[in-house]
């Protein structure tokens, strides 16, 4: 009964592909550092820290998805919705670094691959799915939770496809790519359901408490809120 969180280990993907992935991940992180510097302020920065800690904790919890198979939260979609895509991707990247360096979870040579798949891809996909759904259905607690579910759900099989692409380019195994694709997408659709549920519940909880702290809706909060912030009211010169 020990934690089985397993990311890509050393050896699955050959050294050149892993090295290129390391460079791509580093570029991605550099872009995210710039973006997060623009989007974060003194109020939102501690939240981004909390999101990283929370994703680490949740990744320890493998939940059963089918006979003899488990899954765990990836967290990129959740982080992107709560603190924006740049800080969100950074948060998960820190998680993957700590897991690899401190707990030997995920190969050190595969750290770029794992950061791309679980940090960058899930944050970007999760962000765009969430924003697209919100745009369609508007803002309400059920809508926000539904959009968060969709974002989490979709992000996982897409992350699995990122692995398949890496396997196709530099996989050391002899199993055909088609076989790996079908198996990876199949099981990760199931894991995606868990991801969607955890994402929806967590975003829902924050939205209920402090909707202004959900970055994914920060520019789309309901109009009545904006009306009550008239400077006239603040200055106390209303009749």
């Amino acid at each position: 009964m020990h934690v089985e969180a397993m990311h890509i280990p050393d050896g699955f993907i050959n050294a050149p592909t892993s090295a290129i992935a390391g460079v791509i991940a580093a570029i991605g992180i550099a872009i995210c550092l710039r973006g997060a510097r623009k989007q974060l302020d003194e109020k939102t920065a501690p939240l981004a820290g909390l999101v990283a800690v929370f994703v680490f904790a949740m990744q320890m919890i493998n939940f059963p998805v089918a006979a003899g198979t488990s899954g765990h939260l990836l967290g990129g979609a959740l982080a992107a919705i709560l603190v924006g895509p740049y800080a969100g991707a950074l948060a998960v990247s820190v998680v993957i670094l700590v897991q690899g360096l401190l707990f030997a979870d995920g190969g050190l040579s595969a750290i770029g691959l794992n950061i791309i798949n679980m940090g960058l891809v899930t944050a970007v996909v999760g962000w765009f799915v969430f924003r697209a759904v919100i745009k369609m259905v508007g803002i309400s607690r059920p809508a926000v939770m539904g959009a968060a579910f969709a974002a989490g759900f979709v992000s996982v099989p897409i992350s699995a496809l990122a692995f398949v692409l890496e396997y196709a380019i530099g996989g050391t195994g002899t199993v055909p790519v088609g076989t790996v694709t079908v198996a990876m997408v199949g099981v990760h659709l199931l894991i995606g359901l868990g991801e969607g549920i955890i994402t929806a519940l967590t975003v829902g909880a924050v939205y209920l408490t402090r909707p202004d702290l959900v970055y994914g809706v920060h520019d789309r909060l309901p109009k009545p809120v904006v009306i009550t912030t008239s400077p006239v009211v603040q200055k106390g010169v209303t009749p």
Binding site: E4, S70, H72, I191
Partner: peptide, 11 residues
């Protein structure tokens, strides 16, 4: 936590 292999490991 479940000690079953995760999605990637199982595949």
């Amino acid at each position: 936590a479940s000690s079953s292999p995760d999605g990637l490991e199982k595949v």
